[in-house]
Amino acid sequence: MANVHQPDLFQNLTHKKMGFPEVFSHILTFMKREPVGNYRLMVGTDSQVHPSRTLFITGVVIQRVGKGAWACYRKEVITREMTTLHERISYETSLTERVASLFTEERKNELIDIVLPHIYKGATFTMEGHIDIGSGDRNRTRVYVNEMVARIESLGMEPKIKPDSIAASSYANRYTK
């Protein structure tokens, strides 16, 4: 499979070429500003087939529910039209798994330690893997739901599919066009 592999660099509207340590630092800063919050760390990938290439965008979103979010994304280009739906969905899930694996146990514990002293005040932290597939009768991706959900669960993440997979189907989708 020919692909143009960029190093694991992330970007958003204000920061270009961030390595993962910088991304993690932004997430820590965002959470430390208001440790008493309900935090959702979401990772999800979407793709778009273009002439002679397929563009994959993996979004990383830290949301303080009801009080804003910080997000960035990583881009990967495969230099062919990936037209087989299962291959594309599976590769999207692989990229989500790859970025999620950058959140090592040590890093996850660092994030949990921010909210831990405030749990009695209602603070929470969850990590979700967002998959750009749906289970509706008219959705052609529904046959892959169980397979992809199991892959996300095996990472210890809470899987989310459409319409709840906003990191993939909304945030990442915006940058695949």
Results as ranks from 00 to 15, higher is better:
residue 16 K to S: 08
residue 16 K to M: 10
residue 19 G to R: 11
residue 19 G to N: 11
residue 21 P to H: 08
residue 22 E to R: 10
residue 22 E to D: 09
residue 25 S to Y: 14
residue 26 H to W: 05
residue 26 H to P: 04
residue 30 F to M: 04
residue 36 V to R: 11
residue 38 N to I: 07
residue 39 Y to D: 02
residue 41 L to D: 11
residue 42 M to P: 00
residue 42 M to T: 02
residue 42 M to F: 03
residue 42 M to D: 06
residue 43 V to Q: 02
residue 44 G to N: 06
residue 45 T to F: 02
residue 46 D to V: 04
residue 47 S to W: 01
residue 49 V to P: 11
residue 49 V to K: 05
residue 50 H to P: 00
residue 50 H to E: 08
residue 52 S to F: 09
residue 53 R to W: 08
residue 55 L to H: 05
residue 57 I to A: 03
residue 57 I to N: 00
residue 58 T to P: 01
residue 59 G to T: 04
residue 59 G to P: 03
residue 60 V to A: 03
residue 62 I to S: 10
residue 63 Q to W: 12
residue 63 Q to G: 05
residue 66 G to A: 03
residue 66 G to N: 11
residue 69 A to K: 14
residue 71 A to K: 13
residue 72 C to F: 04
residue 73 Y to T: 03
residue 74 R to C: 03
residue 74 R to S: 10
residue 74 R to Q: 15
residue 75 K to A: 10
residue 76 E to K: 06
residue 77 V to S: 07
residue 77 V to W: 00
residue 78 I to W: 09
residue 79 T to Q: 12
residue 79 T to P: 00
residue 79 T to F: 13
residue 82 M to Y: 00
residue 82 M to F: 04
residue 82 M to L: 14
residue 83 T to I: 14
residue 83 T to N: 15
residue 84 T to N: 14
residue 86 H to T: 05
residue 86 H to N: 13
residue 87 E to Y: 07
residue 88 R to M: 05
residue 88 R to N: 01
residue 89 I to Q: 09
residue 91 Y to V: 00
residue 91 Y to R: 11
residue 92 E to T: 06
residue 93 T to N: 03
residue 94 S to V: 03
residue 95 L to S: 08
residue 95 L to A: 02
residue 96 T to S: 04
residue 98 R to S: 14
residue 99 V to D: 00
residue 99 V to Q: 13
residue 99 V to A: 07
residue 101 S to N: 10
residue 101 S to H: 13
residue 102 L to I: 02
residue 103 F to K: 01
residue 103 F to Q: 01
residue 103 F to V: 04
residue 105 E to L: 13
residue 105 E to K: 15
residue 105 E to F: 13
residue 107 R to M: 08
residue 107 R to D: 03
residue 108 K to P: 05
residue 109 N to H: 14
residue 111 L to Q: 08
residue 111 L to M: 10
residue 111 L to C: 07
residue 113 D to C: 00
residue 114 I to N: 02
residue 115 V to Q: 06
residue 116 L to V: 01
residue 118 H to K: 07
residue 120 Y to I: 06
residue 120 Y to F: 02
residue 121 K to L: 13
residue 123 A to C: 03
residue 123 A to I: 00
residue 123 A to V: 02
residue 124 T to R: 15
residue 124 T to P: 04
residue 125 F to S: 04
residue 129 G to V: 08
residue 130 H to R: 10
residue 130 H to K: 08
residue 131 I to T: 04
residue 131 I to P: 06
residue 133 I to L: 15
residue 133 I to R: 10
residue 135 S to N: 14
residue 136 G to S: 14
residue 138 R to G: 10
residue 138 R to Q: 12
residue 138 R to Y: 05
residue 140 R to K: 14
residue 141 T to V: 05
residue 141 T to I: 10
residue 142 R to Y: 02
residue 142 R to L: 07
residue 144 Y to F: 12
residue 144 Y to I: 00
residue 145 V to S: 12
residue 146 N to Y: 05
residue 147 E to Y: 07
residue 148 M to L: 06
residue 148 M to W: 02
residue 149 V to C: 00
residue 151 R to T: 10
residue 152 I to K: 11
residue 153 E to P: 03
residue 154 S to K: 13
residue 155 L to N: 09
residue 155 L to K: 12
residue 156 G to M: 08
residue 157 M to F: 15
